[in-house]
Design a protein around this nucleic acid. Structure first.
Ligand SMILES: [Mn+2]
Ligand SMILES: [Mn+2]
Ligand SMILES: [Zn+2]
Ligand SMILES: [Zn+2]
Lengths: 140, 140
DNA sequence: GAGCTAAATGCAACAATATTGCATTAGCTC
DNA sequence: GAGCTAATGCAATATTGTTGCATTTAGCTC
């Protein structure tokens, strides 16, 4: 829910502004990776306006609080669908329909961390995207 | 070695051209993620010139053959330091010095695949980047 | 080595994405 | 509601990525 995210924003000392609510609404509603300009376009269609710089800045904050994530393969942004503090968040990306599914698994993180440790590398967080086919697209 | 990559290119029906050799040389030598424009800049310093479109096209081919990879977090390109067909390639990225270390682990891939399968998702390949500190930077 | 041809390059123009500084506006606290 | 500070909008600019087309060149044939 957008309201929850807004509360988290405020708890961190950020203001509950119109642009922030609008961006959160769009991300929640569209449910696929959107670029800042995509978001601006959707809003424009609805007769609302936000400067793209503002959208970038909103997304920066949302990502810093893990309320949204930047998909690295596409550059688009999605709303986080998991609880914060569930460890690092991973994504399944359907190559056919573009659908995103977020998941988390502590064992995977642990496995990666251990592997890295053997190289003397101390991992702080992970970003992982699986490309493939979602169940619906696979059936074809 | 650059020569090895060139041979692979030719085996796939691509020509061994000057731009391709130059890009491979720079990637090998610099050993950190470089954007196409970075590569152009390094070459320019050495009195050589490549159009940026050419560099993009060379990198496209190298990536399609897994001779290079695009780092998703930074957008830069690195030369692949592993054998092809060793499974999917993962990266440790030092947040302090920017160093990249590539690795592969079949068990991690398998773990991710199984996890995804439980959601009905059929993964084809993975892209994974671990952010943290390399051994050298960690010691400080 | 000269000639041929498909592949690759360079160029120009453009599109998309991202950042900065500064004047103005609007949440929030009191 | 007034005041203060964070946030927004705007303008300008930087960076990154793409397309179509004319020209060049690598690799092949002779
Ligand atoms: Mn998340
Ligand atoms: Mn590799
Ligand atoms: Zn799908
Ligand atoms: Zn380091």
């Amino acid at each position: 829910m957008v309201q929850d995210s807004i509360r988290i924003l405020q708890a961190q000392g950020h203001k509950a502004t119109r642009p922030r609510k609008l961006v959160l609404e769009i991300l929640e509603e569209m449910d696929r990776p959107l670029s800042p300009y995509d978001i601006q376009g959707v809003l424009r269609q609805r007769g609302k306006y936000l400067n793209h710089v503002t959208i970038y800045r909103v997304l920066d904050i949302l990502c810093s609080l893990n309320l949204a994530h930047k998909m690295l393969s596409s550059g688009g942004f999605v709303r986080c669908s998991l609880d914060m503090a569930e460890g690092c968040h991973r994504f399944m990306v359907c190559q056919h329909c573009g659908a995103i599914r977020e998941f988390a698994d502590k064992e995977l993180c642990q496995g990666e961390n251990e592997f890295a440790r053997n190289f003397g590398f101390h991992a702080e967080h992970h970003h992982s995207e699986l490309a493939g086919l979602c169940s619906r697209c696979y059936r074809k």
